[in-house]
Structure formats: C-alpha cells, structure tokens
Simulated assay, not measured.
Amino acid sequence: MQPNPPTPHAATVDDKGVHVTTAAGKTRTYSGGEVMTLTQVIDLAEGSATLCQFSTDACLELVDESTQLAADCEELITDITAKGVGANLIGKCELLKEQLDLQAAAAKKVYDQIQGGEEACRTASANAEIRHGAIFRAVADSPLTKPAERDFYNARS
C-alpha cells in the first residue's frame, strides 16, 4: 500500500520558531530541539520545502531584474559612447554593468542551492512517511497506553 503523496504546507519563520500550517488547517510551531512525532517531522520538512520554494522565487526575480538592469546599462553605455561623453562616466557605467552581472550570477547560484534544499526537504518528508508511516500508525492506533516493562525488551528468544 502506497501512502498518499505529501502536500505542501504554508510556513513562516520568526524569532519564536517555524510556524507550519498543514493542508488540514492545523497550525504548529517548532522552536527546535524538541522531540517530534513522525507527523511533526513530515510537516516541518514540507514547511521547510515551501519556504525554500518562496526563496527560489525571490532569487529568480533578482536574476531577472539584475539581467534587465545590466542590459539597460549596456544600452546606456552604447548611447553615451556614441555621444562622446567622457570616459569617466562610461567607466562607471561599465563597472555598474559588471556588478549587475555578478549579482545575477550570485542570485542564480543561490537559486540552484536553495532548489536542491527544497528537493531534499520534500524527499525527507516522503521518505519519512514511506519508511516509518506504517509503524507510526500501528503505535498510534494501538490500545496500549504505556510501553512494555524493561524485562520484555531485554528478554532473549
């Protein structure tokens, strides 16, 4: 039996921790370091993946904006060169274009790294359900309310 595929969760981060809203509308806050249930691990991984997705969108916007501004600088350099404006202004425009190109490249690199992080979070979420979901549900559905006595675990067959 295959589990249902994970669904994205909304998430925000502030000084109190990561706030995750599940597809069912439940809100949980994770401050870090606490013991988590499987559901909490899956929710946190999905929330982290969603945060990564928002960050990759912002990076792509920065890449597009920087590329457009660099193209505008190139056009400005061509125009002022044709008008015979001083070399100092042309040099400053070329430096600005170079900085915009570097900014676009850096944003693209960060985009690639965050995208890898998003994929890792989604994989961790899916793997947690696949590997541990059945035992988690078995324990959650069990009528037992406390663990077995120590002798049970120490007994040898």
Rank of each mutant, 00 (worst) to 15 (best):
Val41Arg: 13
Phe152Asp: 08
Asp14Gly: 02
Gly17Cys: 00
Ala155Thr: 06
Lys146Gly: 06
Asp14Val: 09
His132Ala: 08
Gly117Pro: 06
Cys73Trp: 00
Ala155Ile: 04
Ser66His: 05
Leu144Ile: 09
Asp79Tyr: 05
Thr50Val: 03
Ala82Val: 03
Val63Cys: 04
Gly117Lys: 03
Gln2Glu: 13
Lys108Asn: 09
Val20His: 00
Ala124Tyr: 05
Asp151His: 13
Leu60Lys: 13
Thr81Leu: 01
Ala148Val: 02
Ala104Phe: 02
Gly32Thr: 01
Gly84Ser: 06
Tyr111Phe: 15
Ser157Tyr: 04
Pro8Gln: 02
Leu100Phe: 11
Gln40Ile: 10
Thr56Pro: 02
Ala106Leu: 12
Thr50His: 06
Lys26Cys: 08
Leu96Ala: 08
Glu149Ala: 10
Gln113Asn: 10
Glu118Arg: 15
Tyr30Leu: 01
Gln40Arg: 07
Val85Leu: 15
Ala105Thr: 03
Lys92Glu: 14
Leu89Val: 09
Leu95Arg: 13
Ala124Lys: 01
Met36Ser: 14
Ala23Gly: 00
Glu98Met: 09
Gln53Asp: 12
Ala126Trp: 02
Ala23Leu: 10
Cys59Ser: 07
Leu62Cys: 15
Pro143Asp: 04
Thr145Ala: 11
Tyr111Met: 05
Ala70Lys: 05
Ala120Ile: 01
Gln103Ser: 14
Asn4Glu: 14
Asp57Tyr: 12
Leu60Thr: 03
His9Asn: 08
Thr7Glu: 15
Ala58Ile: 07
Leu76Gln: 09
Gly47Asn: 04
Asp141Tyr: 11
Lys83Ile: 06
Glu119Arg: 12
Tyr30Thr: 01
Lys108Asp: 08
Asp14Gln: 03
Cys73His: 04
Ser125Lys: 00
Ser66Leu: 02
Asp79Arg: 11
Thr27Trp: 01
Leu89Ala: 09
Glu149Gly: 11
Leu96Pro: 00
Leu38Pro: 04
Ser157Gly: 14
Ala120Val: 01
Ala148Asp: 14
Gly86Gln: 13
Asp64Trp: 12
Leu76Asp: 06
Ala24Glu: 12
Pro8Ser: 04
Ala104Pro: 02
Ala87Asn: 15
Gly86Met: 09
